[in-house]
Simulated scan of single mutants.
Amino acid sequence: MRPQDLRVALFSGNYNYVRDGANQALNLLVGYLLEQGVKVRVYSPTSQRPAFEPVGDLVKVRAMRLPGGRGEYKLAWGLPPESRRDLAAFAPNLVHVSAPELLGHAAVAWARRNDVASVASLHTRFETYPRYYGMAFLEPVLEHLLTRFYNRFDRVVVPSPSMGALLREWGVTTPIGIWSRGIDHARFNPGRRDLAWRRSLGIADDATVVGFLGRLVKEKGLGVFARVATELRRRGVPHTVLVVGEGPARDWFAQAVPEAVFAGFLSGDALACAVASMDVFFNPSVTETFGNVTTEAMAAGVPVVAARATGAVDLVVEGETGFLVPPRDIAAYADVIARIVADPALRRSMGEAAHARAAEYRWDSANRAVLDTYLALMRSRASRT
């Protein structure tokens, strides 16, 4: 089996209509696969004004907007007839599903029914979301449903060893591989730091900037971030909060952290400049399976303070590139941030160590692992016939 023999149908709940780390990774994967000669067709809900142009052939799947104030996202009710016809005409020999939603369930059911190889990739810890909306009691139910979902595939790829271990704890028995992530090192590096850009936002040259980067949604740990900012103010720790990103919780977050400087949504070189211009990157999210924003901050030479949770535990070297803190320990977060703020030498050494560690994350090697998973699976299936 050669890469040129693969015909991959990739299913995504959001391939390009709202920008996030998951679909950035999927688009980079598709670009890599196409370069290797793999034939790829992507099935996803779409938008008339997508966040960015898709990589590869994108087939629209009918969907409805999510209720409950999250209308920026769409939900496909399985595979409608026109999508099934297109899928049959494409005749994939491998189905790749990137989200455990109704479209993903329909796709793996189609693959099993038609004896087509199947791979799932895991990008987000959806089972943690209910805790941010007062429904933590649902987490065990979601864990059970996700375990059943991933056990229907021939292979599962996860971004980090800690996520693989978590799936095993749940009871996932499907073979698990690692699809890590890469960094655009030409873009994210310490040389992008720009004090003039900080000044344009009213941030003094000698201010210590504690930064947040990501979509402004509560499941990114905004509540914890706000409480830590309040605690730092209470202790009199000199710092400036810089928030990079947009989302439905922006107004709530602005009220919770009234002293913060909001830079809005940034991309490309502007984003790289913002990240490198931070002094501490604070990521209290426990929903990450890897943490692209964490590695981008590391590549930019910024120390990281993160929740001791999946993803971050594979990236941050405790006491060397930053600190890992029990996810909801407000005092402990404030302790380590205050320590970094008070010690410029520690800040520099951690930033240098973070930059060096981030050098190992490369997109080509990460995406090659997915292609190798595809080929190994196809060879395994062929050997059984």
Results as ranks from 00 to 15, higher is better:
F290A: 09
Q48N: 14
G311I: 03
D57E: 07
D205K: 04
A331W: 11
P45H: 00
P175V: 05
L213S: 08
V156H: 12
A165R: 10
V257A: 10
R19W: 12
V370E: 00
R84P: 08
A263Y: 06
A256K: 00
V275T: 15
L33G: 07
R339L: 01
F52D: 01
G191H: 12
A369D: 02
F137M: 12
L201I: 09
I203A: 07
L324N: 07
V305C: 06
D86A: 10
W170L: 08
P80T: 07
L142P: 09
F11P: 03
F126M: 10
Y15F: 14
A331Y: 10
N27Y: 00
A9I: 05
V275N: 11
A312F: 04
G191I: 08
V293K: 05
F90Y: 02
G13S: 14
D335I: 07
K39N: 12
V304I: 01
V237C: 15
V237S: 15
D335W: 08
R125Q: 10
A249D: 09
Y129P: 00
R19A: 14
F126I: 13
R233K: 13
L213E: 10
R215T: 15
V172P: 00
P130T: 02
G104M: 09
L201N: 11
G191K: 11
R381V: 04
R148T: 12
E139I: 05
R187Y: 08
A354C: 10
R131K: 14
F153E: 01
D20K: 06
K220C: 09
M350L: 03
F225L: 15
R41W: 08
L6F: 02
G322C: 01
L167V: 07
P327G: 03
L29S: 10
G319S: 03
V42N: 08
Q24R: 14
V209M: 07
A353Q: 14
L102I: 11
V97D: 04
P326F: 08
A366T: 00
D206G: 09
V108C: 07
T321K: 05
V157M: 11
Q24L: 15
G164H: 05
A165W: 12
K218A: 07
E246K: 13
G104Y: 10
P161Y: 06
S365G: 11
E143R: 15
L377S: 09
V228D: 05
A117Q: 00
V302Q: 05
R357G: 00
R193Q: 13
T124W: 06
V119K: 01
E101R: 13
V317T: 15
R70C: 10
T173S: 14
L377G: 13
M163L: 02
A117M: 05
Q48E: 15
F262D: 07
A376K: 07
G322V: 02
